[in-house]
Design a protein around this nucleic acid. Structure first.
Lengths: 106, 106
DNA sequence: ATCGAACTACGATAGTCATCGAACTTCCAT
DNA sequence: ATGGAAGTTCGATGACTATCGTAGTTCGAT
């Protein structure tokens, strides 16, 4: 009864920089963000569509970490979860941070 | 005999974004960086001079994490360790990131 | 020479977290 | 209505890490 529950997102003013940095510090999550950053903001991609050498449950875990930190929006669409980068919020809170990180040499 | 050994720093091209983000994600270390960011880059501050509610050994641990990630320079000066932000390297690698993070609402 | 200040090294501990597999839910096609 | 596809939840596990106190080192000042 508790499955497929609502997906809580922090409001912009609830986003904490420590949580954002922690979310982005993981290689898997950073890769996810890199992929998301190349998509149109109004689009969204199914979590599973990002190819990564990890299991489904680990994927869920990482997406949740990003969502709870305020880095991504996740909205249900059928059985899928469409994920988009919260670029406007991040840019407003930490102007230049996201672009700077994404400019990192691979 | 291994004490007070040399302080290894990564070269600019050895700095990894994951390590930098992980270093900055800790509240104590982020506070250290905030303090360092307000000092002139050619100055430097003794690690112990940054007031924080932590023990000496924990302080050492955090400074080392920042140093090994490439976030700060640490140079011995007598018995003290003068610490400075590697602003030029971080700005070159991740332009805008540092300023963006420092603009974060407290 | 000795003492204290500043810091490091070490070991311990408790907490967090990335990872997985298995079982479950939800929804869409057939 | 059945089956599969997409995700979630739930432990469990191993790795990492933030913290501390204690002991040790280095260096400057007395």
């Amino acid at each position: 009864m508790d499955v497929m529950t609502d997906l809580p997102h922090p409001a912009r003013d609830e986003i904490r920089i420590e949580a954002v940095l922690h979310a982005l510090a993981d290689p898997v999550r950073l890769q996810m963000v890199r992929v998301l950053a190349q998509l149109p903001d109004d689009g969204g991609i199914a979590c599973g569509a990002i190819e990564l050498p990890i299991s489904k449950s680990t994927r869920t875990h990482h997406i949740r970490t990003l969502r709870e930190a305020g880095v991504v929006w996740v909205r249900p669409e059928g059985t899928a979860r469409l994920t988009t980068l919260r670029r406007d919020d991040l840019d407003a809170l930490y102007p230049g941070m996201l672009d700077g990180i994404l400019k990192a040499p691979r």
